[in-house]
């Protein structure tokens, strides 16, 4: 018997999104150049781990942590912040208080929050929510299906969704200011700055 389990490795965060080019041998060098070009140019105003994107929020039906039903159809309007986490994940624990605080403060700005708890067990996750007083509901995604649709590489990852379209991805641990910056970029708060 031979057991080769390496557990969780810190996932390399270096891959860029490049169209599927497996079959192309000829364009390889061109694409190498392209890839390196991408890696140097792409920096987001809100921080190094933030990147812009534009893809639909995947369809998913499942249950929330409290076993009530969940469907993404109900979450396709307005501004939504999706945070992928797990009670076993150390950076998730670190960012949890910040997220709880931001969620409370942004409730007035009509920014909704949704957690996605992956590869976890309900009692431990509920314990986690209680301990950090998370105000928003979380999807219980044990098989990682919703996270797969969101193209999560590793938790924690936070997505900004505007009217059913994923606009911004924050990879890794985040904090209130980054979230605020990201939200401002997509929807500048209208009433305060508009004199009319």
């Amino acid at each position: 018997m031979n057991f080769v389990i390496s557990g969780f490795r810190p996932y390399p965060l270096k891959h860029r999104r490049i169209p599927s080019i497996f079959r192309s041998v000829i364009f390889f060098i061109a694409l190498t150049l392209f890839a390196t070009a991408c890696s140097t140019s792409e920096t987001h105003a809100c921080g190094a781990q933030v990147s812009a994107t534009n893809r639909p929020l995947p369809d998913f039906q499942g249950t929330l942590l409290d076993t009530s039903a969940f469907d993404t159809a109900e979450w396709r309007t307005g501004t939504l912040l999706v945070n992928v986490w797990g009670s076993w994940c150390a950076p998730c624990i670190r960012e949890a208080p910040h997220l709880a605080q931001t969620a409370n403060s942004m409730a007035e700005e009509n920014v909704r929050f949704l957690g996605v708890d992956i590869k976890d067990n309900r009692p431990a996750a509920q314990q986690f929510e209680e301990r950090y007083s998370i105000p928003y509901p979380s999807v219980f995604d044990d098989a990682g299906a919703f996270a797969a649709g969101l193209r999560v590489i590793a938790p924690p990852t936070t997505f900004l969704v505007q009217d059913g379209t994923v606009r911004t991805v924050i990879m890794g641990e985040t904090d209130s200011s980054t979230i605020a910056c990201v939200v401002r970029q997509i929807s500048p708060p209208p009433p305060a700055k508009d004199p009319l």
């Binding site: 389990i5 390496s6 557990g7 969780f8 490795r9 996932y11 390399p12 891959h15 860029r16 999104r17 490049i18 080019i21 694409l31 890839a35 992928v84 992956i118 590869k119 044990d142 098989a143 990682g144 299906a145 996270a147 797969a148 649709g149 193209r151 999560v152 590489i153 590793a154 938790p155």
Partner: peptide, 20 residues
Amino acid sequence: HWVDAPVNYDYYNPGRFFGP
């Protein structure tokens, strides 16, 4: 149940040009 996505692997080692 398991879904094929980077987040669901216990060990994950993608090539330079293999993205999620």
